[in-house]
Write a protein that binds this DNA or RNA. Structure first.
Lengths: 336, 336
DNA sequence: GTGAAAGCGCTAACAT
DNA sequence: ATGTTAGCGCTTTCAC
């Protein structure tokens, strides 16, 4: 910056003012400085700037880089932050709680102006403590919160939509693939979806007909689960896979085994992934508008950075998307 | 840090030394300082540290957050950097060259110790200029380079593997889906794959039978291309989709139209995405070991950060994975 | 082995 | 409207 000041024949404070667009600079000064900046192809040192004021950078803790739904979220954020002059940096973590916490700490150490946590596994108390230190938005069913905002889909309702749909088709015995999680963690999507499933089944008087299949939401996890579902007695006529990726695994295994879908077994996913809409998959699923969710999270974070401190807990309404993998049990209502 | 020094009753210089593990500190001093750090739950200010020395953070320019192959790359990097005490921050960009360049600039402004660019669209000269400023590794067919390293698959060979396979099955008229790109950009995966396709066709004396289908490598792009391929006359009996995601789109459209695969049209992808291996897709594809590629890029970057300046240009050998979407033309060699 | 002090590149009072 | 200067939290000579 000193070089620029010399080149332009002005003080470094003036350079700083021009660069920040601060008030109280003549247009002549602006031109001279900008010309010198150009001539020397000077770029401001973000760290030095960050030592005094904001970094104009927000951090995202990404708990699973493979999940395509999370990619959607990030795209929504990118658009909002980009248009507001904020930069976005993503710190990849794993599913483990320690990994996620250390990634979050690192983001704070880097003096990010705000944090968005995507489906964190940390406990509420811990999240509250982070929220006290830095503006924060959590994506996932985490409300109510004191010191941070949350955005999530109404996963209980989403599960209920699936159950209602299947029951209205005539299904009674329905399986749900749990994503393995500690029983005391009520703030995870898998908890909310399991809860919604159980309640909806109860509402239809089917509490004795539900089957919880322990397993993991992944392609392989879905295949494993499908194997066990076929062996169950009585065998379920429908499966709520919990997530699209798990549904893909289930479908894959069932198809290989010659099980007809949806005639023999109906399958519903969750997330409405792009792949699911395509033939020959045509997966019945629940849409939770990830793009919009990401954009909302970004806007909430900007509000918090601007000073708001009352917590917002936004819940988006999911939509059921009926496609070809669900039908009345035993009935081939549509060709596949 | 001053607080820690007071709490421990020592100078801030000593605190600094202990924290960095610098030589010349008594073990008594170490213990006192560490105790105070613990007691005050002090965390070092990364920006202030970065103003004097390295940040121990590397930046990744991610040109497409949706591409699952890129996720694989990042997982490979995470493992290497994590074990070496480096942090990884991902800056998401779009396919546009300007977007990518500004993201790269921003990474440099943040004083990252090194950069990995995933499939950048910038020109060689521009990349060289960046490589002069900061240790850098480019993932993509960009060699030979002066001031940075590259890692890539041998995309020309990969395309040739597909052509050889299809021709050995008896195909002659084969289509290739171009990912739209400027003709003068030879350093893109799409360019290399197109080149490999053309050369291999020529080698088999089929230069007159090849069909370049302009289009985009995406689900929708694949569907569009499939429509035009069906209309082509003479109609190709096989398609090299260029990328799995495009192949999925092609398959989707062909299935909807009642075209039998592989009997009527054979389809091959590129990338060996996890989804492709599952029934009912079972896509013939080319594996380019993304995980390993990411790990190699990370190691090369660490070497550069450590001081190496001779460029390395690593090329990984791709493997053809034959599955159910390719067969002799007109022949149903395997049930789907 | 330990501490004092200069300085990294900026911003923000404050003075002119 | 412009310039001077004191820090931000750390690292790093250089004395002690």
């Amino acid at each position: 910056m000193i070089d620029v000041a010399h080149h332009a024949g002005v003080s470094i404070a003036s350079v700083s003012k021009v660069l920040r667009g601060a008030p109280g600079v003549s247009s002549a000064m602006k031109e001279r400085v900008n010309a010198s900046v150009e001539a020397l192809s000077y770029r401001p040192h973000r760290l030095a700037r960050g030592m005094r004021g904001p970094m104009f950078t927000v951090g995202v803790m990404l708990s699973d880089i493979e999940n395509p739904f999370f990619s959607l979220l990030i795209q929504g954020m990118v658009e909002v932050f980009g248009s507001q002059g904020y930069e976005l940096q993503i710190a990849p973590a794993t599913a483990g709680e320690e990994s996620q916490n250390s990634v979050i700490d690192s983001l704070i150490d880097h003096q990010m102006d705000g944090l968005i946590l995507i489906a964190p596994r940390g406990r509420e108390e811990h999240l509250e403590r982070i929220g006290e230190q830095v503006p924060m938005v959590v994506i996932g069913p985490h409300g109510p919160s004191e010191h941070y905002d949350t955005v999530s889909g109404d996963d209980e309702l989403g599960s209920a939509l699936i159950v209602d749909h299947l029951v209205s088709l005539g299904h009674r015995r329905i399986a749900f693939l749990t994503n393995e999680h500690p029983a005391d963690r009520l703030n995870l999507p898998e908890s909310a979806r399991a809860r919604g499933f159980e309640e909806a089944m109860g509402r239809h008087g089917l509490s004795d007909d539900l089957l919880f299949v322990p397993g993991v939401w992944s392609l392989e996890g879905g295949r494993d689960a499908a194997r066990r579902i076929l062996e169950a007695s009585p065998r379920p006529t429908a499966v709520h896979a919990g997530a699209d990726v798990a549904a893909f695994g289930i479908l894959s295994y069932l198809w290989e085994e010659g099980v007809r879908i949806p005639e023999d077994v109906s399958v519903a996913g969750y997330d409405n992934s792009p792949m699911g809409s395509f033939t020959p998959i045509s997966l019945t699923s629940v849409d939770q508008s990830g793009h919009e969710m990401g954009a909302i999270a970004a806007k909430l974070l900007l509000e918090r950075i601007a000073g708001r401190s009352e917590p917002h807990n936004d819940v988006l309404t999911p939509r059921l998307i009926v496609r070809g993998t669900t039908s009345a049990p035993g009935a081939a209502i549509q060709s596949r």
